[in-house]
Amino acid sequence: MNFTLAGIFAVLSHAIPPFLPLILAILALLVLAQLIGRLRGYRLTDYRCLPAGIAALLAGLSTLWWLPMLTYSRLGLVATLTDWAALIAAALGVALITWLVLHPLSYLVRGPRGQ
């Protein structure tokens, strides 16, 4: 297999547009949660919330189930190392974005002392 940068961009130019509204909505939610939290005193390193971490972990793990369905595939067809790397990277990305949204929101709900 010969991968070129132009080939990768060609695939992305066909794969991303159907999901662009969803990507933009998630990005807006992420920015709003971080912005509102920071305006109310939220700091990433000063606040801990175990439920937000657990929810993010569960969201990341659920990606292994729903992402193949979203792409009209099956987990059984994830056969190569590249396929598994892409699926695991997507799961880690979903977990990180979920945590980055839920962590400041939990600060807003629970307050600065809610540990």
Rank of each mutant, 00 (worst) to 15 (best):
residue 12 L to A: 14
residue 22 L to V: 13
residue 98 T to S: 14
residue 26 I to H: 00
residue 6 A to G: 03
residue 83 D to T: 00
residue 20 L to I: 08
residue 43 R to M: 05
residue 20 L to F: 11
residue 90 A to R: 00
residue 8 I to W: 09
residue 81 L to I: 11
residue 20 L to A: 14
residue 72 Y to K: 12
residue 2 N to E: 14
residue 104 P to L: 11
residue 42 Y to M: 09
residue 69 M to F: 08
residue 108 L to H: 10
residue 41 G to A: 07
residue 47 Y to V: 11
residue 105 L to I: 15
residue 47 Y to Q: 09
residue 78 V to A: 11
residue 104 P to Q: 12
residue 58 L to K: 01
residue 41 G to Y: 14
residue 107 Y to I: 07
residue 44 L to D: 15
residue 7 G to I: 00
residue 6 A to H: 05
residue 15 A to Q: 12
residue 54 I to F: 03
residue 110 R to T: 06
residue 88 I to H: 00
residue 9 F to E: 10
residue 20 L to K: 05
residue 63 T to H: 04
residue 93 G to D: 06
residue 62 S to V: 01
residue 43 R to N: 11
residue 32 L to Y: 10
residue 88 I to T: 06
residue 107 Y to K: 07
residue 5 L to C: 03
residue 85 A to G: 04
residue 67 L to P: 00
residue 34 Q to M: 09
residue 28 A to C: 13
residue 45 T to N: 10
residue 26 I to W: 02
residue 96 L to P: 00
residue 9 F to Y: 08
residue 32 L to T: 13
residue 9 F to Q: 11
residue 10 A to G: 14
residue 27 L to H: 04
residue 3 F to Y: 09
residue 87 L to V: 02
residue 26 I to V: 15
residue 109 V to D: 00
residue 48 R to I: 08
residue 102 L to Q: 03
residue 85 A to F: 13
residue 57 L to S: 01
residue 56 A to T: 02
residue 79 A to M: 12
residue 60 G to V: 01
residue 66 W to A: 06
residue 103 H to W: 06
residue 49 C to H: 15
residue 32 L to M: 10
residue 73 S to W: 00
residue 4 T to Q: 03
residue 81 L to Q: 12
residue 37 G to S: 14
residue 8 I to C: 01
residue 80 T to L: 03
residue 25 A to F: 05
residue 54 I to K: 02
residue 59 A to W: 04
residue 25 A to W: 04
residue 111 G to A: 02
residue 9 F to K: 13
residue 33 A to T: 06
residue 32 L to Q: 07
residue 53 G to T: 01
residue 63 T to N: 04
residue 11 V to L: 08
residue 77 L to E: 14
residue 109 V to W: 15
residue 42 Y to N: 09
residue 104 P to W: 10
residue 100 L to Q: 09
residue 26 I to M: 04
residue 36 I to Y: 07
residue 21 P to D: 04
residue 36 I to L: 11
residue 17 P to Y: 09
residue 81 L to G: 08
residue 16 I to N: 04
residue 101 V to A: 02
residue 88 I to F: 00
residue 24 L to V: 14
residue 95 A to F: 02
residue 27 L to I: 05
residue 42 Y to R: 08
residue 95 A to R: 02
residue 27 L to R: 04
residue 47 Y to H: 13
residue 32 L to F: 09
residue 98 T to P: 02
residue 75 L to Y: 09
residue 37 G to W: 06
residue 20 L to T: 14
residue 93 G to K: 02
residue 64 L to I: 06
residue 103 H to M: 08
residue 96 L to C: 05
residue 58 L to M: 07
residue 103 H to G: 08
residue 9 F to T: 10
residue 4 T to H: 02
residue 51 P to Y: 00
residue 23 I to M: 08
residue 50 L to H: 04
residue 29 L to Y: 05
residue 60 G to P: 14
residue 33 A to P: 09
residue 4 T to S: 15
residue 35 L to N: 07
residue 54 I to A: 02
residue 93 G to W: 05
residue 84 W to Q: 09
residue 79 A to F: 02
residue 91 A to L: 06
residue 42 Y to K: 07
residue 2 N to M: 11
residue 22 L to C: 05
residue 22 L to T: 12
residue 50 L to T: 11
residue 50 L to F: 11
residue 74 R to M: 10
residue 21 P to N: 07
residue 1 M to D: 14
